[in-house]
Simulated scan of single mutants.
Amino acid sequence: MGSWNDFNDAQSNTNLIPKGTLAKVRLTIRPGGFDDAAQGWTGGYATRGSTGAVYLNGEFTVTEGQYARRKIFTLIGLYSPKGPDWANMGRSLVRGMLNSARGISDKDQSPQAQSARRISGLKDLDGIEFLARIDVGTDASGDDKNEIRSAVTPDHRDYAQNMGLTPSFAGQPAAAAVQQTAAAPQPSAGVPGRPSWAQ
């Protein structure tokens, strides 16, 4: 234990989750009261900032593991008067969140996968649980802070383990995964006691 006169060897109080950590999170949207029905922004979920930018004020809570109950605050861009980049990053993040939450490979272009990437409104994102890759950015004061910029989809080798799924389902087309989950596995003649899909 260090001296109570010299604090050079005391740990820094950064309290950051390490960059690159994978964690299952739940998104809570902090409503900003801004609606634009023409854009599909209804229900008061969007926030309009003083610059004219529109975003979702996201509070992501880690649901399990070493960092359970930790909160990460990240804005999801919907519109910026400076150009399309921020909105495109927001759309990309939401696509990843939907793929991750609904168990869809990013490469899956089946009708079922395309349907699963559609939402009826921003309310569908409030409460969504997915696997996130934790990043480190800077806040307005220039201090380090955790952010969420990307979601981890079934294409990633650690997806199934972190989402608590059976590894054999990860990365399959959405229809196959749903079909296999719904059907009780039956042992086959090939290997006694093993379901046919596991051989």
Results as ranks from 00 to 15, higher is better:
Val178Asp: 12
Asp158Glu: 14
Ala174Cys: 03
Arg157Cys: 04
Trp197Ala: 11
Ala177Glu: 13
Phe169Glu: 09
Ala177Asn: 12
Pro185Cys: 02
Phe169Pro: 05
Ala189Met: 10
Pro154Val: 02
Leu122His: 05
Trp197Gly: 03
Thr181Asn: 10
Val152Trp: 01
Gln179Asp: 13
Met163Gln: 12
Ala183Cys: 05
Pro167Gly: 02
Ser150Val: 00
Phe169Gly: 10
Ser150Leu: 05
Thr153Gly: 08
Ile134Phe: 00
Ala176Tyr: 02
Thr138Gln: 13
Ala184Phe: 00
Asp158Pro: 04
Pro185Asn: 02
Thr138Leu: 07
Trp197Asn: 09
Glu129Trp: 04
Gln180Ser: 11
Asp135Lys: 02
Gln172Tyr: 06
Gln172Leu: 15
Lys123Glu: 14
Pro154Arg: 01
Gln179Arg: 15
Pro185Arg: 00
Val178Pro: 03
Asp155Ser: 15
Ala170Ile: 06
Gly137Met: 00
Met163Arg: 09
Pro154Ser: 00
Asp135Tyr: 00
Gln172Glu: 14
Lys123Ala: 15
Arg157Met: 10
Pro185Glu: 02
Gln180Met: 12
Gln161Met: 13
Ala151Gln: 08
Trp197Lys: 07
Ala176Leu: 15
Ala198Gln: 13
Arg194Met: 11
Gln161Ser: 14
Leu165Phe: 07
Gly193Glu: 04
Gln179Gly: 13
Pro173Tyr: 05
Ala184Lys: 15
Val191Gln: 08
Asp155Trp: 04
Ile128Pro: 10
Gly190Leu: 13
Val191Cys: 02
Asn146Tyr: 00
Pro173His: 10
Asn146Ser: 05
Asn162Ser: 14
Gly142Val: 01
Ala174Arg: 09
Pro187Ile: 02
Asp124Gln: 05
Arg149Pro: 03
Ala189Arg: 11
Pro192Glu: 02
Phe130Gly: 10
Leu165Ala: 12
Phe130Ser: 08
Pro154Gly: 00
Gln179Tyr: 11
Ala183Asn: 11
Glu129Leu: 05
Gln186Lys: 12
Asp124Cys: 04
Pro167Ser: 09
Pro192His: 03
Lys145His: 06
Leu122Phe: 10
Ser141Gln: 13
Asp158Cys: 05
Arg133Thr: 08
Tyr159Met: 08
Met163Ser: 09
Ser188Lys: 01
Asp124Ala: 12
Asn162Trp: 03
Gln186Phe: 03
